Amino acid sequence: MSESTEQIQNADRLWEEHRHEPFPDNLRRATFGDTHVWLLELDIVGCVLRWRDNGGTLDSKDSLLLQSCIKDLDRVISEINDPTAAHYCQRLHQLAVLVAENTPSTK
């Protein structure tokens, strides 16, 4: 199995885990600076769904959005005090990174 195939399978596994776990209540109104966690999740999930629907590709707009969300989550995760909420965001971050790493460049 190639590394890329394994990463895609990991992304699929993380997606299944993520979609079955409810968004943590304490993050519903959480903001870190000007970053709303629920908006990050919404943007990342949208990118993941488009990536899955398009056979593992994203357009340049979605790729840029996903990269921006990854950077924001990098910053936010360290500020989350609740272990359950932090785990939720860490898994979301890992999923976003796997999708970004397995997206060929498109126009």
Rank of each mutant, 00 (worst) to 15 (best):
S4Y: 09
T5S: 12
E6A: 12
E6D: 10
Q7N: 13
Q7K: 15
I8Y: 01
I8A: 03
Q9A: 11
Q9P: 00
A11C: 07
A11R: 06
A11Y: 04
D12K: 04
D12Q: 11
L14T: 08
E16H: 06
E17N: 10
E17D: 08
H18S: 04
H18V: 00
H18Q: 13
R19W: 01
R19Y: 02
R19S: 04
H20C: 03
H20V: 04
H20W: 03
D25Y: 03
N26K: 14
L27V: 11
A30M: 15
A30V: 12
T31N: 11
F32E: 06
F32R: 08
G33S: 09
D34T: 12
T35H: 06
H36F: 13
V37D: 03
L39Y: 13
L39D: 13
L39Q: 15
L42H: 15
L42R: 15
L42G: 12
D43C: 09
D43E: 14
I44A: 04
G46K: 10
C47S: 14
V48A: 07
V48L: 06
V48D: 01
V48T: 06
L49C: 08
R52G: 02
D53T: 02
G56F: 09
T57A: 12
L58A: 06
D59A: 03
S60K: 14
S60P: 00
K61W: 07
K61G: 06
K61H: 10
D62L: 13
D62G: 04
S63R: 15
S63V: 04
L64A: 14
L66G: 05
Q67S: 15
Q67F: 03
S68H: 15
S68Q: 14
I70H: 10
I70F: 10
I70Y: 10
R75P: 01
R75D: 09
V76D: 01
V76L: 15
I77H: 02
I77R: 10
E79C: 00
E79P: 00
E79H: 08
I80M: 05
I80E: 09
I80P: 11
D82P: 01
T84R: 09
A85M: 02
A86H: 04
A86V: 02
A86L: 02
H87M: 01
Y88Q: 08
Q90K: 14
R91W: 00
R91D: 10
R91Q: 13
L92G: 04
Q94D: 12
Q94H: 08
Q94Y: 00
L95T: 01
A96W: 03
A96I: 02
L98S: 05
L98V: 07
V99Q: 05
S105H: 10
T106H: 11
K107P: 01
